[in-house]
């Protein structure tokens, strides 16, 4: 019992992201509406962003802005005092790019709607097979 509790406490963040990721994946697989699929993709991306950010965390560390003396005094820098900046950099660009790709995906959905007058996947399929 003790071991299970320890495992739960030390890993529950990853489990939360996996649940979120699976919600997004289910949306992409099972939903019939194209916009719902796109939103599922976005939820999936959000889960990955959260996962990366949580990788960067360190216990008892602060944000990665280095303390520095303004008048030339020496400040000792220790890597354990600051959280890992690299995942933050990667996700910073990934967030903006995910918004941009969401925009392109929605634009494609609008084009599909203009062509077939519907966003439901099965209706588009039946229209395609009629041609």
């Amino acid at each position: 019992m003790e071991e299970i509790t320890a495992l739960l406490v030390s890993r529950y963040n990853y489990w939360a992201f996996i649940v979120l990721m699976m919600v997004g994946l289910y949306g992409m697989i099972a939903k019939n509406n194209l916009v719902k699929k796109i939103i599922g993709m976005n939820i999936f991306q959000t889960a990955i962003i959260l996962f990366y950010v949580s990788i960067g965390a360190k216990k008892d560390a602060t944000i990665p802005i280095i303390e520095h003396g303004h008048h030339g005094e020496e400040v000792v820098i220790k890597a354990v005092d600051y959280i890992n900046p690299l995942p933050h950099v990667l996700m910073l660009t990934a967030i903006v790019v995910s918004v941009a790709t969401l925009g392109v995906a929605l634009a494609l959905a609008i084009r599909v709607y203009r062509q077939y007058n519907t966003l439901e996947e099965n209706e588009i399929k039946s229209q395609l097979s009629e041609e």
């Binding site: 030390s10 963040n13 990853y14 990788i55 960067g56 560390a61 802005i65 280095i66 900046p85 995942p87």
Partner: peptide
């Protein structure tokens, strides 16, 4: 979670934290 010795935090990231000010004079790593 939040292990300071995790692989992600022990290769290139300490270099960035320790050298950023000397290399670029930018405190925000």
């Amino acid at each position: 979670w939040a292990d300071p010795n995790s692989p992600a935090s022990s290769h290139v990231s300490p270099y960035y934290i320790l050298k950023a000010i000397d290399d670029t004079a930018v405190p925000n790593v």
